[in-house]
Nucleic acid binder design. Structure first.
Lengths: 365, 365
DNA sequence: TTGTACGCGTTATCAG
DNA sequence: CTGATAACGCGTACAA
């Protein structure tokens, strides 16, 4: 007698209707329980549950019924152990607490769910060190694929090497690592966005525009700066290093820098800030010092976060579709995992972004 | 010869220095590889890696060295399968995109990490239906414990039954289910908070205060309403159903209701709104209609979200410590899992909250 | 202190 | 179409 049948209580072995035996209290229901119930082999049960073509309609039907009746739940661990795949995607983002990021996550989750993938989400809280820890956890969890938006100050990317070595696809969005070979990036055209934001300010009559941005190791900030300079250049406005303020884009520095700008002489007449929340706080600090927005100083932010619609005056900003980006990222990764699309070469996808003009930058010239 | 040794390449079996055999390219490193390298049994390796007391310092040392050298990663699936535990906690929250929630998550993550637990996070997006799906996923992922803050409109709680049946602890925070037996809840005193917010408005001279809140099936909203009524009662102010507006607390209804309130006759002189973002948008809508805050109408929000500090005027609100709450929740759950603390009876922990007074409600009486 | 042998629940392979 | 059997990698009685 095969080993697995031994688990069956002796007296019940030939009594299919015995409800007490196959499902022991407190024990998980397994394919063996189903198999015993139907007097077939576990192998057939497994096939039936996985829609294997080589199983008759009738048996499949019966298997599903009994599975249902017994409340069977496939054991992911056994399955993952055997299949060497987890059907899980990892996601590492800088912060969960932003409109953009949670839109992206919603998009990723939608696509992942539909494709039968689970998600492990973690935030680096803008710390490279925590990002390394998160990547490590993801690797240990043996995710089938990884989706990343880099932390503020990540420079060394070696924590992704294990993934590359093992052939686990890594795909970046927004805060990407373009110099990394064999990876896919999904971004907006940050240079263009920076250019348009700056040009808009210039067209509104600004001549002395300060640019506040984050760590230039991040593509998003470096490219927006390029766009800013391109616009200045095109309109033959002077540029000096002092016009660019690089800082951590957190709440505290927003207050500090807002106040510092209010004291600048000559007072700048335009601000291009790469973060809405930061811009909102700055604006607040400036108004406290009696500076009128946009009359004295026009402001453009970035991200179209909710806060941009709530501050006074409403903030001109750059909008880009988070949900869409998330869906695209997930779809891309999953297609690759399913072998539909080879992801061999470095690949960059650029999605649309647009300038949303609101009162914070609109003024008569 | 034991079965596992067979995997070893014949010519290498007695040659410990052979680097090619034990670690096959593309293959995972297992405890067998380490065992072969050291000519000991896999059992010893397993014990060594798990700090089992019955293993000599010397062998443990050697095991760790080789593990390090080979880049060994314990296989979670095999381990979980064997141990019947996953060392994973599930977290279901309504929305990731809020200051409060992401603070809580940061707290949970901190404690969970320290205790060696992994996290699976998912958002219900305020939909009961999605919450059910998420709970199901968590159950299939066989989390060791579950942390939940309920969605807006969840009424039926049967999706948590499988957890209770299987003895998996479920712990609620903020949006809890107090009528559920055998579960722990961590909350603030919402009635007290509601009372203090309302009393503050009354003390500022408000006599006709509107309360805007969410679905009263949720404890947080029901209790705040109680507090609101308690304050009115105490100051012998009249109460009618029309003074309470129950609505989905989303962006769109914020605009609508803000405008509706501006047209009310008589115009109310105070608003107590159970959500900062909603309050911020409302305030905006009211100001567009020429209503002065706080002179014509004083406003109190809830949550101390970042937006409350950025709107104009800054919003009086209720602050409660998200990070602390998260740490407490996680610590409680983990203590229970480790068997330190029995979580048998229904148990409620109340943590501190406070009214933060800002300009939106401050006026001369 | 260490080794042996087995089972956790699935799935892949091979043989009917 | 179905069954038997052997892994997947780990942890642990039981034995030595």
């Amino acid at each position: 007698m095969p080993q697995w049948k031994k688990r069956f209580h002796d007296t019940c072995f030939f009594i299919p209707a015995c409800k007490t035996c196959p499902v022991k209290e407190g024990k998980e229901v397994t394919i063996y329980d189903i198999a015993r119930q139907l007097h077939i082999s576990p192998a057939t049960v497994s096939r039936g549950l996985n829609d294997h073509p080589a199983v008759s309609k009738k048996t499949r039907q019966k298997i599903l019924e009994v599975a249902q009746a017994l409340g069977y739940q496939s054991n992911t661990f056994a399955s993952s152990l055997r299949k060497q795949r987890t059907n899980t995607l990892g996601v590492i983002v800088p912060k969960l607490n932003s409109h953009f990021v949670s839109s992206v996550l919603a998009g990723i989750e939608k696509v992942a769910n539909e494709a039968g993938y689970n998600l492990i989400i973690s935030q680096s809280l803008e710390s490279a060190q925590k990002e390394v820890a998160n990547a490590h956890t993801m690797f240990k969890s043996r995710v089938d694929g990884l989706i990343v938006s880099l932390a503020f100050d990540t420079e060394d990317l070696s924590h992704f090497q294990p993934f590359f070595k093992k052939g686990i696809p890594v795909i970046f969005f927004d805060r990407v690592a373009l110099n990394l070979p064999n990876s896919t990036h999904i971004i907006i055209d940050n240079q263009k966005a920076g250019y348009e934001a700056t040009r808009h300010l210039i067209e509104q009559g600004c001549r002395h525009i300060i640019h506040i941005t984050g760590h230039l190791a991040r593509n998003v900030y470096a490219d927006r700066l390029k766009g800013y300079r391109q616009a200045l250049n095109e309109y033959q406005l002077p540029f000096s290093e002092q016009q660019v303020i690089v800082c951590p884009l957190d709440e505290q520095s927003a207050w500090e820098i807002g106040r510092k700008i209010a004291d600048m002489k000559p007072l700048p007449d335009g601000l291009f800030i790469t973060n809405d929340t930061f811009a909102a706080i700055c604006m607040h600090a400036l108004k406290e010092k009696g500076i009128r927005i946009p009359a004295d100083m026009a402001i453009v932010g970035f991200n179209d976060d909710l806060v941009s619609r709530v501050v006074e005056p409403p903030l001109t900003t750059i909008h880009y579709p988070g949900q869409e980006m998330g869906e695209l990222v997930a779809r891309h990764l999953i297609n690759h995992l399913k072998g539909t699309v080879p992801l061999t070469h470095t690949h960059t996808i650029i999605i649309h972004s647009e300038l949303i003009i609101r009162a914070s930058s609109l003024r008569k010239i």
